[in-house]
């Protein structure tokens, strides 16, 4: 009996747009890459709760407070689906969280920037969620089934968040001089970090070719970044604000906006842990986890005892 060529069957499925499911055979590196990417995405959702959470207590109106709470709560929910999707590849949530806390696993660098004013909450919704959506829409078609399905749900909520962020900035852009200034300042600070969210230039991205062949990714970093610039360069006109890039110009020949050079030194510094809030973000996550330990232990002890009682019929 001939030995089946697992690798070929796997690649045929991918080429035929059939999703890979948890019990299917897959190359070890496909499993590893997906585990890394999905868990990193889950961590980003959870760490991402912190910069926005920083403004919940000070939201300027009850309506904005409710919107912000609901948004940050949604991010926690996204973290949950993503941890579950990653668990289907064989790694437990606890292991993933330990990797985050030890610094072994990464999360999106954007969350290592501080939220200094209320306008940052609008700018995060509009620019950061806007950039995330570009990537996530692509991921609804990623080859690993559980990840693709989680992304479909997440994308619906994210587009809603982006509109809410834009709406918050629109109010500021039509408000007092101080509000306008706050709005422009936030855009100035978040624009370049948002562009960095798409990752290194294609020429320097190490995992890209294999990920494209396996359809984990379907568009390159630079392609997605360009789509984002094109979208935002139009949307900012409604806000009557400016993007902080003197080289931003419509290029009639390319049918795209040209834009200036990203500060890649800053990008790599933040990745390495030297961003303004890397330490605070990880400290906050570790603190919550350590201080929650007795709570988790109590829940396990109680569940165990209750199980015994039920088994005894009591």
């Amino acid at each position: 009996m001939p030995v089946p060529d697992f690798e070929k069957i796997f690649q045929d499925k991918i080429d035929g747009e059939i999703k890979i499911e948890p019990k299917d055979w897959m190359p070890e590196n496909y499993r590893k890459t997906n585990t890394r990417q999905i868990s990193q995405h889950a961590h980003s959702e959870v760490v991402g709760m912190l910069p926005e959470g920083n403004w919940i207590s000070r939201a300027p109106s009850l309506k904005r407070k409710a919107i912000l709470l609901a948004k940050v709560q949604d991010e926690g929910g996204h973290g949950l689906y993503l941890y579950s999707a990653a668990e289907t590849l064989g790694m437990s949530r606890e292991e993933m969280i330990n990797d985050l806390h030890s610094g072994k696993a990464k999360y999106s660098s954007i969350f290592n920037y501080p939220t200094l004013t209320w306008a940052d909450i609008g700018a995060i919704g509009w620019l950061v969620d806007g950039a995330a959506i570009m990537n996530q829409v692509m991921l609804t078609r990623t080859s690993y089934g559980p990840y693709a399905r989680a992304m479909v749900r997440i994308c619906k909520e994210e587009s809603f968040h982006q509109r809410q962020g834009f709406d918050a900035l629109l109010v500021l852009s039509r408000g007092s001089a101080a509000q306008k200034e706050m709005c422009q300042d936030a855009i100035n600070r978040w624009w370049w970090p948002a562009l960095m969210m798409f990752g290194p230039r294609d020429t320097e991205s190490t995992n890209s070719d294999q990920s494209m062949k396996w359809k984990i990714k379907r568009k390159s970093n630079d392609e997605l970044r360009q789509n984002f610039v094109d979208m935002i360069a139009e949307q900012i006109k409604t806000l009557k604000m400016k993007l902080p890039d003197p080289d931003l110009n419509w290029n009639e020949e390319r049918k795209h906006y040209d834009f200036g050079t990203i500060n890649w030194d800053e990008f790599w510094q933040v990745v390495k842990g030297n961003g303004p809030c890397n330490k605070q973000r990880l400290d906050a996550r570790r603190k919550a986890w350590e201080e929650g330990e007795w709570v988790r232990e109590a829940a396990i002890a109680y569940a165990g005892r209750r199980g015994e009682r039920m088994a005894r019929g009591g």
């Binding site: 959870v46 709760m49 912190l50 959470g53 919940i56 709470l69 940050v72 709560q73 926690g76 929910g77 973290g79 949950l80 941890y83 906050a284 603190k287 919550a288 201080e291 929650g292 330990e293 709570v295 988790r296």
Partner: peptide
């Protein structure tokens, strides 16, 4: 929010 002992309870 963002500081709960476990994600489900944070939510």
């Amino acid at each position: 929010c963002g500081h709960g002992p476990v994600l489900e309870q944070d939510i």
